[in-house]
Nucleic acid binder design. Structure first.
Length: 270
DNA sequence: CACGGAAAGCTTCGTTAGAA
DNA sequence: TTCTAACGAAGCTTTCCGTG
């Protein structure tokens, strides 16, 4: 991230909106001095939350990209998504559906990619399947899934030649304790959007009856171990410091289960 | 688990410089 | 003269981390 460029961008947006540093700071819940620091590119002295608050207040969004060995992080993340999608596609096909992965569309302001677009020929039902390996923002998930479902019939007709009569939606989450816990926390909201879950959802897939919202948890390939089962998140442990009985210098004991060197560098707390 | 030191992140305050 | 922005110092709160 180019600190100076980010600072100049914040400043430009602020001035464009006719705000003083003090105004922006007050609106974002930070001080004028902090706005000044950010605009001058002194991000080493400012927290990420503060910068994000300023960006949001200016109607922009701050995106932080973590890069590692070229595109390896993307590949790792995609593997999980692809694995869950494969499971979902298999389940649908066994229930008599045809499925197309990653169907992109652009319909005026609506644009995006439907993870799995499924078709049930017997009932002319189109299913917009959303795959989420992580349930981060419920609101965002519901909003985009709603938009995709709204466009599903048109997309199915134009991209696959499926003349559907009714569009339904299915949200697929990994069958992990974390995902289930997060879903449970937002149960009321999720139930409103996806009334059918578990056995009822699977029964609906066998014999679709009109528009419906389904929520299904699926186990998927554990990337770390390369086998199927609930997702296990391997924790990275800090090297244990062991002091010899003779009082010599502490030595780091490598954790054989650790996947990365967690040694923090300067400023790693941010 | 509690405690204390260190550091980060931030605010407040006083001051200065430049522009209108 | 006033307003805005910049700067530095001091101090507060929170979090992390090592230690017992």
């Amino acid at each position: 991230m180019d600190d100076a460029r980010l600072g100049r961008s914040i400043r430009m947006l602020r001035i464009k909106q006719g705000l003083r540093q003090e105004d922006l700071g007050r609106a974002a819940g930070v001080s004028q001095d902090l706005v000044s620091l950010v605009e001058r590119g002194h991000l080493d002295r400012v927290g990420l939350r503060a910068v994000e608050a300023l960006a949001n207040r200016l109607g922009s969004d701050l995106r932080l990209t973590l890069r590692w060995r070229g595109g390896d992080i993307d590949r790792l993340l995609d593997e999980g998504h692809a694995a869950l999608m494969g499971r979902a596609a298999g389940m649908l096909e066994r229930a008599g559906w045809s499925a197309k992965p990653e169907v992109t569309f652009a319909n005026y302001a609506d644009r995006g990619s439907i993870d799995l677009l499924a078709w049930h020929p017997g009932t002319a039902t189109v299913l917009a399947v959303e795959i989420k390996t992580e349930l981060t923002s419920i609101e965002e998930t519901l909003r985009t899934h709603d938009m995709k479902t709204r466009n599903a019939l048109k997309v199915a007709r134009e991209r696959a030649g499926w003349e559907g009569r009714v569009a339904a939606r299915l949200l697929v989450l990994p069958d992990s304790s974390t995902a289930r816990r997060r879903a449970a926390r937002q149960e009321l909201v999720l139930r409103r959007a996806y009334p059918l879950g578990g056995v009822a959802a699977r029964a609906w897939l066998q014999a679709p009856t009109g528009a419906a919202g389904l929520l299904i948890f699926l186990p998927f390939t554990n990337i770390a171990r390369g086998r199927c089962g609930p997702v296990s998140r391997r924790r990275v442990r800090a090297p244990r410091l062991s002091v010899s009985k003779h009082g010599s210098t502490p030595t780091a004991v490598a954790d054989p289960t650790a996947v990365a060197d967690p040694a923090p560098g300067p400023g790693s707390r941010a």
